[in-house]
Each structure stands twice: as C-alpha cells, then as structure tokens.
Amino acid sequence: MGQFGLLRDEDRAFQRLDPLEETTLTGARRTVGGALSDHELAVAGNAPLAMELRTASVGALPLVLLHYGAPVSIQPRKMPGHFLFQVILGGCLRVEGPGGVFVAGEGQAVVLDELAGRRLHWSADSRQLIMRIPRAAVLKAVGTDSGPIRFDRAFALHDADTGTLELVRYIMTQATSPMAGGHGSAILDLLVRHLLLHHSDFRDRHAPLPASIRRAEAYMRLRLSDPMTLPELTGAVQTTARTLSGNFQRFRGVSPMARFRDMRLDAVHEALKSGTAESVTEAATDFGFFHLGRFSSAYKRRFGESPKQTHLAAARPAAPTPCNNAAAG
C-alpha cells in the first residue's frame, strides 16, 4: 500500500482513529456519501471491496481518510454546496470530465467541484485524504463578482514555491490533536486562501509576480547547470539584493538562492523520472550538485524519496493502472 513519504508520520497518526469498514457496494456508497457527497460506485472486475474510512475535523474543516482496497469507479452526483480537496497519499486518481482526462498520483492533489458528469477512477492502492470545503467559504474569499474560479488540475504538494505540503501536514497534525475542535473557521479560511492564491486562476488575476522575480527565474532556468551567486543574479535582473530577496520571501516563501536550488532539484527529479539520466551521479552533476551527500538529503526532503529510488522506479516497467492509462477512453 502506497504511503506518501513526506506525510508518513501524520498519516500513521490519522490511522490510529477508529475506521468505518464496509465490504459491500451499498454499504460503502452509503458511508462515503454521508461523509462527502452522494455518488454511484462500481468495482472493476471481481475485486473484493475492503473500504476503510476515518473522519476527523479541524474546527469547521471536515477531513476524511479513505481507502477502498479495490479499483473503483465513482460517478458523483451534483454537489453544489462544496469543493473537495483530495490529497493522494498512495496509488492514483484518474479524473474524466468535459475538459478531458487527467491523473493525480502519489504526492499530488486536486480540487474538484461541479462533479456532475465526471467520472473518478481510484487505483486499488489509492489512499486519499479528502477535505470538504464549503462553497460559501470560497465565495466569501473571492467575492461574488469575481466570476467562476478554475482550480489547477493536479499539483505537487512538495513544490517549495507554495508551501502546500507544510499546510497539509499542519492540518493533519491538528486533526489528531486534543485541540482539533478549537480553531473555529480559521484553518478552513487559511486553506481556502492558500488554494486560491497558489492553485487556481484567482492567483493570476489578483497576485501577479513582480517583474524582478519573473526576470530572475528566467535567468535561473538558463543557468541550471552553472554556478551562480546572489550578486550575479541581482546584476542580471538589475535590482538590489534587498529588493529581490524581499520579493522572493513574500511571493515564493524562500530566498532567491533557495529557489535556484529547488529549480535544480526539480530538473534532477525530471531527468531521473523520465529515464534520460544514466545514473544519479550524472543527473546530479549535470545540474550543479557535486556534494552528493548533501544533494541526496535535499532531494529526499523535497520529494519524499531518495534519488536512487526515483531512478530505480523509472527503470521498472509500469503495471497497467489508472495512473498510466490517462489517455484511455
């Protein structure tokens, strides 16, 4: 059973909560529908169902940890009253809808709304943490005249630009603490603002990046294989170190050089995941990491696994699952 490495401790604490268990379609549909939303449920083939559902809340924000134990297809019915923020802790989720097909895998998340007409496919090993967000909380944050909000399709939790992983970790920790009910709507409001500003088109409408950040990141992308200093970067984008550092802290949550390191780590991750690198050492040194011990530690903090694990996984042929059949009918 998959378990997203960067949330493993929080996941284990959540699993100590008493589960609701069902082995029949009718029972599973009734239990999940009561916690989330009404839906149709079907199991692929003759796989036995072994549903486990755990619930908690942090103030006004309800959470559900759900695992079906079998490959299932879900046809949600209309849910006008809320959004679902779904964090993939294991396996994958495949979403079919009017806008096409996309897949969220382990360590990614999606925000789903207006689910009528969509079909969701869970892999047998898929485990998801689902947070139910009232639509009223989103409308309160954006205003009634902002127009429809479109959330990003599938996004990585561990992207250092956003801090989404840290927020999810905090919410999971609070959900299993004795003070879980003492937050009122504060955590819900924090989550809504975070998703809007980092994972929706509201971000582009209301929080454009300063030109200095755009220029700096464009320069970084051209120099991922080369050494770089902060004075060099500030000279290239024609601003001061104080201004550039302040903008990065405000809009990215990290310093300019930490952002450069993360972009390099992302490039190594892509090279290992795609199989274009012959070895971990080659991928690391191609993007400026020559102290392999420090590189490996930074890589594991960012991606929840060692670079060797990423490289080995890319070399193994993938078994047919909803995760690697995104284009299937």
Rank of each mutant, 00 (worst) to 15 (best):
L63C: 06
G235W: 10
A13G: 08
F83E: 07
S126M: 09
S57D: 05
D113C: 10
P80F: 07
R214N: 11
L190T: 11
H194Q: 12
D159G: 09
R153M: 12
E22Y: 04
T26C: 03
D152E: 13
G184R: 05
R12C: 00
D159F: 10
G143E: 04
M220E: 02
A284Q: 01
V268M: 08
H311Q: 00
P134F: 05
E278G: 09
E21S: 15
F4V: 14
L53N: 02
Q174A: 10
H206M: 00
L167S: 03
L195T: 04
T31L: 12
A141S: 06
L244R: 13
S297A: 12
A124Y: 08
A56I: 06
E22N: 06
V280R: 01
L36G: 03
I133R: 00
G329C: 11
L197W: 09
Q108P: 06
V111I: 11
A44R: 15
F151M: 10
L115G: 00
M228E: 02
N46A: 12
S146P: 03
A160F: 13
H206T: 00
G235V: 14
L65Y: 01
E270V: 10
M228S: 09
Q309L: 08
F102K: 05
A28W: 01
A137P: 04
G90R: 06
R302M: 08
E282V: 03
K78D: 14
G147R: 11
Y170F: 15
L84V: 06
F251L: 05
A314N: 07
R316L: 14
L25G: 01
Q238L: 15
T144M: 11
F4P: 12
F102C: 01
E52F: 04
R132L: 07
T162G: 13
G27D: 01
A154N: 03
Y219G: 02
D152L: 11
D204S: 03
G5V: 11
G45K: 09
F303P: 02
E217I: 07
D145M: 12
